[in-house]
Measured scan of single mutants.
Amino acid sequence: MQRVNMIMAESPGLITICLLGYLLSAECTVFLDHENANKILNRPKRYNSGKLEEFVQGNLERECMEEKCSFEEAREVFENTERTTEFWKQYVDGDQCESNPCLNGGSCKDDINSYECWCPFGFEGKNCELDVTCNIKNGRCEQFCKNSADNKVVCSCTEGYRLAENQKSCEPAVPFPCGRVSVSQTSKLTRAETVFPDVDYVNSTEAETILDNITQSTQSFNDFTRVVGGEDAKPGQFPWQVVLNGKVDAFCGGSIVNEKWIVTAAHCVETGVKITVVAGEHNIEETEHTEQKRNVIRIIPHHNYNAAINKYNHDIALLELDEPLVLNSYVTPICIADKEYTNIFLKFGSGYVSGWGRVFHKGRSALVLQYLRVPLVDRATCLRSTKFTIYNNMFCAGFHEGGRDSCQGDSGGPHVTEVEGTSFLTGIISWGEECAMKGKYGIYTKVSRYVNWIKEKTKLT
């Protein structure tokens, strides 16, 4: 034993070699072989497995989906700052455009905790909710729209109204504003409101030439003092309507412009014939205590009207009353817009006519005020429907199939267009061939041609 100890002390290297040989010859039971080890760690190889990531292109799944990435790591994937920024906006807080917040056709661009709407022409605001041009839906104005110097929408209202708090709607500024039905039992019968379409306001006024200088022999019209197929109006439903009495009662109609003036057809009036105007009328054979009678003290036909040349060209006249009318729910003026808007309103496509005229061709006159909704007829169809001249200051309205029309005794009465609950004068009943005849239409004086003249002559002093 002493000898062994001496050998170990003198030859430590020998001992180490012996131990190493023993270990190498022993069977290893701690580690699995290569094949079995792979069965336990069965993990798919990654895209760049075996390579240094710093030297390969980034992978979106590896960089940002398996674990949260930084902007720089995302930049490695896209290799483009702009594309990385677009991805980053949604990656950080989701897609803010998912709810489609942009209105009126706006395009949404996502941002971090926010979004941006790219608005089409005519709109602005956070969600493109603000109209900035009158060309689109009248700028959301209830009545009139004008573009300011910086191309912003400025709404306005006709006389007797003021802008509401929203700067879009119009509200009454006087007790009985024009064009409004205020009798409670008839307010439910107000005709369907007309909503502004998209309009090209630059070209809204037709490029028409008034044929002022045409000389033409007097034409022989049949029954051209021209509501057939209409309905009984309720008291106060058309408070701007008046009836004219002269040699015979209810020979023509008219509309209240203001307390002192009536507008009617020029062919209705004769110099030297006494005319009485009755406002607030409903049943011409009954006294309903809503009527107001006034005498006409002055007749002003349009300066281009000449019955000797043509009885229905420039067929418009103004009547001055001896005493002002007292405005109330049964006696209310009709609204008159400017030339541009009167023309736009007419193009809405349908209007209402009213009167006490004959209820059928050569038949009896109506006792109760009649009204009828009539569609506008395109000019080409209008011209083809008659052998008589249709001037540019006239328009056609009615039904091709016949059966409904204005008729004798309705002449001078109103053709009105309702705009968001307020009625505007767009025409004056003038003439036609018979009444409600198939293929024939009622012919009306186009008020847009005469609004400046009306307003100039009827100013209240």
Rank of each mutant, 00 (worst) to 15 (best):
E340Y: 13
N258C: 01
V326I: 11
N343E: 15
L372T: 12
C102S: 02
C268G: 00
G421Q: 08
A207R: 06
G349N: 07
R46K: 02
K234R: 12
E259R: 06
T133S: 14
V451C: 07
P197R: 09
N80L: 04
E193K: 10
R379F: 10
L20G: 02
N42E: 06
G363H: 12
N113E: 13
V331I: 07
A250S: 12
R43H: 02
I316Y: 00
C117A: 02
G351V: 01
K387D: 12
N42Q: 11
K274P: 14
N166C: 03
F144E: 00
Q2I: 09
Q408C: 12
P44L: 08
D110T: 12
N166F: 02
N393S: 15
N135D: 15
G403W: 15
A266N: 02
T342H: 03
I17V: 10
S411A: 14
I275V: 10
Y330M: 08
I334K: 00
E456F: 08
I344T: 11
P101Y: 04
A192G: 12
N203K: 08
E124L: 09
P177C: 03
H303P: 10
I309M: 10
N295Y: 07
K347I: 04
A279P: 01
G363F: 06
L52Y: 06
S329L: 04
I428D: 00
Q241C: 05
E35I: 11
E61L: 03
N48F: 01
C435Y: 03
E86G: 05
C69R: 00
F224C: 06
I210T: 15
F348A: 14
F196S: 15
A9W: 14
S350V: 12
L376D: 02
S99I: 10
G402T: 09
I136K: 12
T190V: 15
Y22A: 13
K89C: 06
E159Q: 08
L130Y: 13
G363E: 12
L20I: 10
T386A: 12
K387F: 05
Q237R: 06
C108S: 02
M65P: 01
A9N: 13
V202D: 08
R140Y: 07
N42M: 10
T225G: 13
W356P: 04
I210K: 08
A250C: 07
E142W: 06
G412T: 11
F224H: 10
E433L: 06
I256E: 01
P12A: 14
V263R: 00
S187Q: 12
N151L: 11
T215N: 10
E76F: 00
S204A: 06
N343S: 11
A279E: 00
D131A: 05
V154G: 07
P324E: 06
V195F: 09
I309N: 11
F144G: 02
F221R: 11
E420N: 11
L327G: 02
S204R: 13
E10C: 12
